[in-house]
């Protein structure tokens, strides 16, 4: 494992912990998109299905369990927790799941590395992860006041994706037969979606003002 991959995974882990910490301690999910969180739970459920029959490393298995556990916990908090669920702004979080789910499913059935159940599900999870942040970005744009933790959560997620691209470039030049077009294209599109957010995030950081996205 190279340093970019490790840094990417740690950033990903940090993003999830920041979100869980916010929800658990402040008992509020204001500004958090349940739609995005549900899509991530589905992304991890479909991608890490191989946890039972494909052992890669102890590290991978532990990380998969953490991402599965944390994503389903976050969904549970927003939907079921007595106090947290009151802060969920349903009227602002209006993005339609199916809008993203169906195209991803169709695309995974048509464009995949191998037409097997496991492989189609894995590919579906890649496509879905690429666009799962959209409901959250739309919600951020609608919410005038973005609190620090929500901003940091999205920033860390974007950083994780950018680090994964560096990891692919590194692996491409250091490993033989390391070619994963589908992963790379889906991952690059995913990272580009953060471009706008990154721009405003750094602006607010540089000028030391509250993060606000233009409508």
């Amino acid at each position: 494992m190279n340093i970019f991959r490790l840094a990417g995974d740690m950033t990903h882990l940090a993003s999830v912990l920041v979100l869980l910490l916010k929800i658990h301690t402040i008992k509020s999910c204001a500004g958090v998109s349940l739609k995005t969180q549900e899509l991530y739970a589905l992304v991890f459920a479909t991608r890490y299905l191989d946890i039972f029959f494909n052992f890669v490393s102890f590290y991978n298995t532990i990380m998969k369990l953490i991402f599965l556990g944390s994503s389903f916990s976050i969904v549970w908090y927003i939907r079921r927790h007595r106090i947290v669920r009151r802060s969920y702004d349903k009227d602002q979080d209006t993005f339609r799941h199916l809008f993203l789910l169906l195209p991803c499913l169709l695309l995974a059935l048509v464009i995949n590395e191998r037409f097997t159940f496991k492989e189609v599900l894995w590919t579906f999870s890649l496509y879905l992860e690429a666009v799962a942040i959209l409901p959250q970005l739309v919600l951020l744009q609608r919410t005038r006041n973005i609190d620090n933790l929500t901003g940091q959560y999205v920033f860390l997620l974007g950083a994780y994706r950018a680090l994964y691209i560096l990891n692919w470039i590194y692996r491409y030049f250091t490993e033989e037969h390391y070619v994963h077009w589908i992963t790379w294209i889906a991952g690059t599109i995913q990272t580009l979606l953060y471009g706008d957010f990154f721009y405003y995030y750094f602006q607010s950081w540089k000028n030391n003002v509250r993060l606000e996205l233009p409508a």
Partner: peptide, 10 residues
């Protein structure tokens, strides 16, 4: 060997 369907990333 071919790494086409080896998924060792998260």
């Amino acid at each position: 060997g071919s790494a086409v369907t080896e998924h060792d990333e998260l």
